[in-house]
Simulated assay, not measured.
Amino acid sequence: MGTIHYGSGMDIHVDDRTLAHLKVAIITKLRRNESFTLSWPHPDDHPEGRSTLWFHPAVPLRFVFDEPDAPELNRDWLEQLMRSANSTGGIELVPEQIGTPPSA
């Protein structure tokens, strides 16, 4: 289980494979000096709901992975995350769909 450390004290826990894909999408946006939101559903062991976080290039950010080796990225999933990153709704964290073309 990896972690996104955002700002002072905000930690988001997500599996390493998902985190590897999110890292690419997040860094791409921040490299362009673009702010955006990231939304995700609460895990099963938390109260029902979802959270949204506003990302800004000036806020400190760190990605921590439990696994030493980076996974191979799923191009379709990454493209889906990037499309949502460029929308007005921001990045919607959706599950990886292996073998399924990305939705339009």
Rank of each mutant, 00 (worst) to 15 (best):
M1H: 11
G2M: 07
G2R: 08
G2F: 03
G2A: 12
T3W: 08
I4C: 04
I4S: 02
H5A: 15
Y6G: 04
G7C: 10
S8F: 12
S8E: 15
S8H: 14
G9Y: 04
M10L: 15
D11W: 10
D11A: 15
D11T: 14
I12S: 04
I12K: 05
I12C: 05
H13R: 14
V14E: 11
V14N: 06
D15G: 12
D15W: 13
D16L: 11
T18H: 13
L19F: 05
L19V: 07
L19D: 03
H21N: 07
H21C: 06
L22A: 01
L22H: 00
K23V: 02
V24N: 00
V24A: 01
V24F: 00
A25P: 00
A25W: 00
I26E: 00
I27L: 06
I27M: 03
T28E: 07
T28D: 04
K29S: 11
L30R: 00
L30E: 01
R31A: 04
F36W: 02
F36M: 08
T37W: 08
L38C: 02
S39W: 03
S39K: 05
P43I: 08
D44I: 13
H46I: 01
P47N: 08
P47D: 10
P47S: 10
R50S: 14
S51P: 00
S51R: 02
T52M: 03
T52V: 12
T52L: 01
L53S: 09
W54P: 02
F55W: 05
F55N: 00
F55M: 02
H56G: 01
H56Q: 13
H56Y: 10
P57W: 05
P57T: 04
P57Y: 04
P60S: 04
P60M: 08
P60D: 06
P60H: 09
P60Q: 11
L61E: 05
L61N: 02
R62Y: 11
F63G: 02
V64I: 13
F65E: 06
F65V: 09
F65M: 11
D66Q: 14
D66N: 13
D66A: 14
E67R: 10
E67I: 07
P68T: 08
P68K: 09
P68S: 07
D69A: 13
D69C: 07
P71A: 04
E72C: 03
E72V: 14
N74H: 15
N74Y: 09
R75H: 08
D76L: 01
D76M: 03
W77Q: 07
W77N: 08
L78A: 03
E79F: 10
Q80A: 14
M82E: 12
R83W: 03
S84N: 05
A85D: 02
N86T: 07
N86A: 11
S87E: 08
S87Y: 06
T88S: 15
G89A: 15
G90M: 04
G90A: 08
I91T: 04
E92S: 13
E92V: 11
E92P: 01
E92L: 12
P95D: 09
P95A: 06
E96D: 13
E96F: 08
Q97S: 11
Q97L: 14
Q97G: 00
I98R: 14
I98E: 13
I98P: 05
I98Y: 11
G99Q: 10
G99R: 11
G99S: 09
G99E: 09
T100V: 15
T100C: 05
P101D: 11
P102A: 11
S103A: 15
A104L: 15
A104M: 13
